[in-house]
Design a protein around this nucleic acid. Structure first.
Lengths: 229, 229, 229, 229
DNA sequence: CATGAATGAGCTTTCATTCAT
DNA sequence: CATGAATGAAAGCTCATTCAT
C-alpha cells in the first residue's frame, strides 16, 4: 500500500516479515497436527513433521523449541477453542432455562470438536501419552471442566432441580462420558470417511454418526435425568 | 509309585526349577508393572524394567520376547481379572432384581481395580499409548464391555424399565464415566498415599476417596436414573 | 564282557565312561557339522548346535572350549581325511607312470570329498570366514597341498615330461582349479538333491554332476595338457 | 542465462554441498574398504567403520542404510571395474589372434585388481562370508565370468584350436585358478609391504611378486597348453 | 532466515560363556 | 557329568537437537 521508498519501509518490511513468520508457524502447526493425529505423540518424530511441512530440520527449531513445545501449543489452541464454546450458566431473568443452556453448551462443544477434528482427536487421547509438562496442562484443563459441571449441578440443586448427589463424582462421570463419546464419534467419522474414500460403503457404529445435535441431546438427556429431578 | 530311588528327587528338582522359573517371571512382571505405571508404556524402557527387577539384560529376554510381549501379558491378565468380575445379568426367578445385579457388578469391578491398582492404572490409560497390536487387544475388550452394557439396557427396556434411548451411546457414555471415575479414583488414592508417606496431610479430591461401595452406588444411581424409569 | 563284580569294575566303568564320552563328542561334532554346513561358521550359533545335538548349553562346554574349538576340530578331521587320500608320487620301477599316480590322487581326493560332503562343503569355503587361528590352520594345509603339487611338477620336469614354468604359480593354479571345481560340484549335488526331494526335476549345471572319475580325469587332463592344441 | 544476481551463487552453493556430500560418501566407503579388508565382512562392525572414518554413528546411517548396503555398494564397484577390464574375444579380420586377446584380458584384469587391491582382497574372498543378498550378487558375477570363458573355449574349438573337453568344467577350473592366484598375489604383496614397512626384508613366495604381465602370461600359458608336453 | 549435515546418547536385541544345582 | 538360568558385553540402528554455511 505504501509506496514511499525510504521512510516507512522498515516498518513495512518488519510487518511483512512478522506476517510471514506467523504464517510459517501456522503451516508447521498444521503439519504437526496431521502427523500427531495419524501417529500419536510418541510415534510421531520431528522428521515426520518437517517432512509434512516441507521445511528443513533446522527451520523447525527456529519456530519451536522442540517436539514438546509444538504439542503444548496445539494443546493450548484446543483448550482455548473448547473454553470459547462453553458459557457459564446464568440465572438471569431473561435467560433460557438452565437445562437449555446446558444443552446449548454440549452442542457448541460438539460443534467445535467436529470443526477441529484433527486437533480434537489428538487431545481427547489420554494425557499420559504426553510427557509430564503437557500432562499437567491437560489435567488442569479437564479439572476446570469438571469445576464447571460441578457448578452447574450445585446451581441446579440450589434451585431445587437436582437431586442429592456427590457433585464431584457426577462431574467426573459426565466428563468421562463426554470424552468417550467424542472420542468414539471422531473415530467413527474418520473410519466412515476412510471407508467412503476407498469406495466401500461399510458403516461402522451408525449410532455415533448421527448429527451432532441429536448426539448432544442424547447425552444431555442422560445427564439430566441422572442428576435432575 | 516310585519304582526306583531316583524318580522322586528328579521330579522334585524339576518341579522346584519350574517353580523358581515361574517366580522369576512373576518378579519381572511385577517390576514391569511398577515401571509402566510410573513412566507409561512408551517412556518405559527395557533398561528400566531390568533395573527394577534387578536382573541382567539377557535375563529379560529369557522370559519375554520384548517390551511389547510383557505388556501384552499384563493386559491379558488385567482383562481376565475384569472379565472375572462381571456377571451377566439374569432374569431367573430366584435372582436379585436386575439393578441390584448391576450394582453388584460395579462393586466387584471396583474391588478388582483397587486390588490391582498398579495394573489398573496402566490399563485404564488410553490404548493409543500402546502400539497397534496392544491397542487392538484393549479396544476389543472395551468394545465387549460396551456390548455388555447395551445388553443390560436392552434387557431393562424389554422389561419396561428403561426409557427409549440410543443403547450404543448410553453404553459408551457409561463406559466413559466408569473409566474416568476409576482413573481419577486411582490417581487420588496414589496421591493420598504419597502425601501420607511424606507426612503431609494434603487431601486431594476427597470425593473419590470414599469407600468403593458408595462410589459404585453413586455411579449406578447416576446411570440408573439416567436410563431407567 | 567282564562280569566280575568288584575287582575290575573300576576299569570297566572308566572304560565305559570314556566310551560314552567319546560318543557324545562325536554326536556333537556331527550336529555341528550339519549346522555349519547350513548356516556357515559365523551365522551358526552355539544355540543352533546344542539344539541340533539335543544337549544342554553347559554340556557343550564340557566337551569343547567354544565355537572356535569345535570348528578347529572339524578342520583337523577334514585335513586328515584329505591327507590320507594323497600319496606322494614315486618313481619306483614297479610303480605306475607318474601321471597315472596323479590321476589316482585326484580321484581319491574327490571320493573323499564326496564321502564327507558336509565337512567338505564347510572347509572348501574361504578360510576368511573363520577367525585368525582357524584361518592359519587351513592356510597351512593348503600350503602343504601346494608343496605336493610343486613336487609333482618338479619331478615331472626332471623326467623331461614337464615344460619350463613357474612351479609355484602352476601349483597355486591347480589348487584353485581343484577347489573351485569341488566347491561347485558339492553345491550342484546339494541343489540336485534338494530339487529331487521337492519332486522337481530341475537339473542344474549338469556338467558337475557327472561321475567323479570322469570329473577327476577331466581336471587331470586340463592340468597336464591345457586346453588348446 | 542469469536474469538475477542470485542464481549463480545459489547453484554454486548447492553444487558445493552436493560435492561435499559425495566426498563424505567416498570417505566412508574408503574407510569401510580398509575395515572389511582387515577384518572381513562379519567381524567388521559399523563401529569399526565409523571409527576408521572418524564420523559419528548417526552420520553413517545418513549415507548408508546399514552394513550390508555399504558392502553391496563396494561389491558393485568392484564388479564394474572387473567387467570394464574384460573385452569379448572377436574374430574380426583385423583383430589380434584370439589367444593374444585372452592374454590381454588376463593382463587387464590383473592390472585392475592391483590398482584396487583393497577392494579386490575383499571381493576375492568366498561369497559365503556375506549374507544371502550379497552372496547372490557375487555368485551371479562369477557365473558370468564362467560364461565368458566357456564362450572363449567354444570359439577356440570352432576354429580348430581347442581340444575336446567339457567347457563348463574347464571354465570353472580357469576361474578357480585365476581367483586363487590373484588372492595369493594380493596376500603376498600385502605381506611384502608389511615386511618392508617393518624394515624386515622377508620375501614370502617370491613367485607371486613378479610383475603382473609375466604372471598373467604364465596363467594364460597354463590355461592354453597345460603343464606337460 | 533457511538449510541439512553432523552429532551421540540411547534404544532393543543377540549370544558366547559361566556356574550353582 | 548334565543341566539351563543367568550374565553382560557388544551389536545394529533411531532420532531429537545443534550449528556452520
Amino acid at each position: 500500500m505504501s509506496e514511499s521508498p525510504e521512510p516507512e519501509p522498515v516498518d513495512g518490511r518488519a510487518a511483512r516479515a512478522q506476517q510471514r513468520r506467523h504464517q510459517r508457524r501456522s503451516e508447521i502447526l498444521a503439519a504437526a497436527t496431521q502427523v500427531f493425529r495419524e501417529k500419536g505423540y510418541h510415534a510421531a518424530s520431528v522428521g515426520d513433521i518437517i517432512e509434512a511441512a516441507r521445511i528443513a530440520r533446522g527451520t523447525f527449531y527456529l519456530y519451536f523449541n522442540g517436539k514438546r513445545e509444538i504439542f503444548t501449543e496445539l494443546a493450548s489452541e484446543f483448550l482455548s477453542l473448547i473454553r470459547g464454546s462453553v458459557r457459564k450458566i446464568t440465572l438471569d431473568p431473561g435467560a433460557p432455562p438452565p437445562i437449555e443452556q446446558m444443552r446449548a453448551n454440549f452442542r457448541r462443544v460438539m460443534g467445535t470438536v467436529l470443526a477441529h477434528d484433527d486437533l480434537a482427536t489428538i487431545m481427547l487421547r489420554d494425557p499420559s501419552e504426553v510427557d509430564l509438562e503437557g500432562r499437567a496442562q491437560m489435567q488442569q484443563f479437564f479439572d476446570q471442566v469438571i469445576g464447571l459441571i460441578e457448578l452447574a449441578v450445585r446451581t441446579g440443586r440450589s434451585l431445587g432441580f437436582a437431586r442429592d448427589c456427590d457433585d464431584h463424582i457426577i462431574a467426573v462421570s459426565a466428563l468421562g462420558a463426554l470424552r468417550e463419546v467424542l472420542r468414539r464419534m471422531l473415530a467413527a467419522r474418520a473410519e466412515a470417511a476412510r471407508a467412503e474414500a476407498e469406495g466401500l460403503d461399510v458403516a461402522p457404529s451408525r449410532a455415533l454418526l448421527i448429527d451432532t445435535e441429536r448426539l448432544a441431546d442424547e447425552l444431555v438427556t442422560f445427564f439430566v435425568r441422572g442428576v435432575f429431578t
